[in-house]
Design a protein around this nucleic acid. Structure first.
Lengths: 238, 238
DNA sequence: CGCGGGTTTGAATGAGTTCAATCACGGTGG
DNA sequence: CCACCGTGATTGAACTCATTCAAACCCGCG
């Protein structure tokens, strides 16, 4: 719950007890191993999920085995806020690393949110952010070079993690394989590897098996044209 | 107004007078020439716009002059449904062809929609569709070849026009320059031209100065893996 | 007629892919 | 404790798709 509180809490800071209604909603906690499915394409979505820990991905598979990841979902992220009105999911969600998630019945969720304007506003903001992430993803994949894309994604993830931890750290715990980065950025695994090597050689980052350290944030942001405004963190100031 | 009625009307068919509230909302009608700005990045959005005729685009400009179009907006489309809660726009909107649009004050819009569940549901659906378009755009740009992308976009636009006209026509009036297609698909103008030539040579389409005729819809859809389900037109049956 | 925007074509270049081989590393079983 | 295995990361070489630059073309319009 912690991570959601942190995430949603930004928007209801003034009135923390608004969150209690939400915390009291009945739920089930589930764990999924990396690679396991959470929601599959064509499925009716009757639940809202909140990621407690770990990373998940939303993606679509194409006929010839290609995969495109739409976005990463981090602790504190909710889905599918949009689809819960009797729509069928048009994409898959699965665990990118080991994931713990809270599952809440959609109708109960809706009722609580509808009856609490503070909460409604918070989730509205979350939906705005989610849409902004999709837009940025289009730009990244459509008009940026491999090097820019990769750097840009790293900075985005780093910033999003900060939304939950409350501080902007230079080390990004990175629990997922490079093949996921490839499928997110529309590149081949091989090229992701080369590109990361290049980013290391350029002194932007350092990597170990657990994650990525950002060595020159400013230079890196300039290089890849990263501007965190699209994340709509206005309420925050990191 | 006609086009919006057609668009939103699908979701409130049973109860046409629900739309009257909406039609009665005070508004201004504006015309923009191709290339003119409608909303610019960083601007506060206090209005909801509805496209009456013509096409508009949402896009972002990158430092070095590159441009990525996020999506096309056709008659009957509304924006920015999401952003109207005191957010600043993180992208531009401008006219792709000559555009007539209806401008409605955000607060009045919100009040009317909130007080009318049928309308609220309709616009909720419109928002779901909009998000689905963004997701599909990511997949198109991230994991499809130039030929597939181009064909896929043509079929999507064709299908979306049908949502408003009420019938699926094989001829798509195409009022915008190829350079817009290029910026939407993350390709160069030159390559779009070559790709269209190829689609013509393959017998998928025929073009004149006004638009595109789809000659082999089925074959074309198979080739580019177009599956209209993502458009969430379930309520329709064309 | 001539200008100008948009489109088309060709040739050279380049970014990213593909295929295949190698490496690094953590886990497992003998 | 070490050999072995498998997964994921890395490297090299050949190849492909798309870009770039430049020139030609087309067509509507003043």
């Amino acid at each position: 719950m912690d991570s959601l509180i942190k995430r949603i809490g930004y928007y209801v800071r003034s009135n923390p007890e608004a969150l209690e209604d939400f915390a009291r909603l009945p739920y089930k906690t589930e764990t999924r191993q990396a690679g396991e499915t959470i929601v599959s394409e064509g499925e009716k979505v009757n639940f809202v999920f909140v990621i407690e820990s770990g990373w998940a991905i939303r993606f679509r598979l194409l006929e010839n085995g290609r995969r495109q990841i739409l976005n990463f979902m981090l602790p504190g992220d909710c889905f599918d806020l949009m689809a819960i009105t009797r729509a069928k999911s048009d994409h898959n969600v699965s665990a990118a690393s080991e994931v713990v998630l809270r599952r809440i019945k959609a109708d109960a969720f809706m009722k609580t949110v509808a009856s609490n304007p503070q909460l409604a506003t918070s989730f509205w903001w979350a939906a705005i952010q989610e849409e902004a992430l999709l837009r940025e993803q289009i730009i990244r994949v459509g008009r940026r070079s491999a090097k820019e894309r990769t750097a840009h994604l790293i900075l985005e993830l780093n910033r999003r993690v900060a939304t939950v931890t409350g501080q902007l750290d230079d080390y990004l715990a990175f629990p997922v394989a490079q093949s996921l980065m490839a499928d997110a950025l529309g590149l081949s695994v091989v090229h992701i590897s080369r590109t990361l090597t290049q980013l290391k050689a350029d002194g932007y980052i350092k990597m170990d098996s657990q994650g990525i350290e950002i060595l020159r944030r400013k230079k890196m942001a300039d290089m890849c044209d990263f501007d965190s405004r699209y994340l709509h963190l206005d309420k925050l100031d990191l």
